[in-house]
Amino acid sequence: MTNNGSLTRYAPSVIGWIVLVSLPEWINAVGYTDLGSRVVILGLAAMALNFLLGHTGVLSFGHAAYFGLGAYGAGLTLRYLAPSTGLAILVGTGIGTFAAMLIGPLIIRLRGVYFAMVTIAFGQIFYFIAFRWNTVTGGDDGLTNWTRQPINLGFATIDLKDPVAFYYLTLVVFAVATAIMAKLLASPFGRSLLAIRENERRALFLGIPVNLRIWLSWTVSCGFVSIAGAMYALLNNFVDPRALHWSQSGTFVIMAVLGGMRSFWGPLIGSAIYVVLQDYLSSRTSNWMSLVGLVFVLVVLFFPRGVLGMLGRRSAT
């Protein structure tokens, strides 16, 4: 019985990892490895958002700002500072996390729609900085003239020009990041976040410093989003202000909802569906924006619990 239980418990993640690790093998048609990298990177971003949205119950609609800061941090490092991919990821993550830490105290006292609005609005500051600061960021045209560099491990050098090699780097970053998030959620700290989600007042009565915990959760969440942003910049060898725009935040939220907000892996599935769908639609029609909008509407009306939410309910009954 217990054997059976642990089998059904671990089988999905094992299958999931097999799919992710073997992905370049079966998706190797030209260009599609990058699509896989995009699914994993945006999936990481959506999972990071979901750390706050689904597991702490705080509605943030401004995560693109920290995604974009991670992306610009990485791009600017490679362009101006040093030809090191590792340093680029570190700097991008550092900048995004630091900005989130600073903005946190201004917003953690707010809740619900108020929190959502303020996070959206704050995100736009960075958008306009990237947009206007032409000489450094390239403005509307984006930051170009840089490429991801080989990683030197001492005993071996990994050439990241190859999309498959980069995919595996992405997957390693993804694995480490999700492992840390899972560990955090399973810790007493993570449990206190769930308590805040379920009943904030009760959590407060239990002596949980709610605002401080939300600030921490916000910082952690934005930190992982900025890792995803840095990886996204490396994937494209390019960043432009749209990475920071509020419409990008909406994309992360819909991914989380589409896959299932209440589950850990849901946003990754949401990302896979969304990225593939968008790629397909934008290759077929120039009006893909309406269709993406329609996806938002349909998901909200008919699919609010997401893929994993639906499956979970079915297996529970």
Partner: peptide, 30 residues
């Protein structure tokens, strides 16, 4: 559309109107 979402998590009306904004912008362009 929006009436169906009263009383639910504000997240859903936010996403719905967000999608509508996309549709309207693209529709006017069309």
């Amino acid at each position: 559309l929006i009436r169906r979402l009263y009383g639910h998590d504000p997240l859903y009306s936010l996403l719905l109107t967000f999608g509508l904004a996309f549709i309207i912008e693209d529709g006017t362009r069309y």
